[in-house]
Amino acid sequence: MQVHTLDKAGIINELNIGSGICHAVHQGRRADFSLLVALFSNDVRDNTPVELIEQPQTTDELLRERFELAAPQSLRNDQSSYAVSARQAELFHHGGLASAKLCHYLTPEVLTYLPEDTQDLPEDVYLNLSGHERRHLAVKSPPKTLPYDLYNKLTTAYRHDQLRAQT
Rank of each mutant, 00 (worst) to 15 (best):
S99N: 07
A100N: 02
L15G: 01
R76L: 08
V3M: 03
V50K: 09
L129W: 04
E116P: 13
Y151R: 11
S34P: 00
L6R: 00
L150W: 06
L62V: 05
R45I: 07
R87V: 05
T5K: 05
T118V: 11
D161E: 11
S34A: 14
L15V: 12
P108C: 01
A38P: 07
E51K: 08
A98K: 07
Y126I: 13
E65V: 08
G28R: 02
Q119L: 03
R134H: 00
L91F: 14
N152D: 15
S85P: 04
L91H: 09
A165S: 13
E65N: 14
A38T: 09
L163S: 00
L69M: 15
V84P: 04
P56R: 06
V50P: 03
H26R: 10
P108E: 00
G96N: 03
N47V: 14
L75F: 04
D117N: 11
P56F: 14
A31C: 15
E90I: 08
A86S: 09
Q88F: 08
P108W: 02
D78I: 07
A70K: 07
P115S: 03
E133T: 11
V25S: 06
T59P: 15
E51A: 02
C22V: 13
P108L: 02
Q27Y: 07
G10R: 00
K8A: 05
P49H: 02
E123S: 11
H26D: 09
L111P: 03
I12L: 04
L106A: 01
A31T: 15
K140L: 13
F40H: 08
R64Y: 04
T167S: 15
P49S: 10
H23D: 13
G95C: 04
R45G: 05
Q119E: 13
S99K: 08
C103M: 03
Q162S: 06
N77F: 12
P142Y: 14
L127C: 10
L39F: 04
A86V: 02
S74M: 14
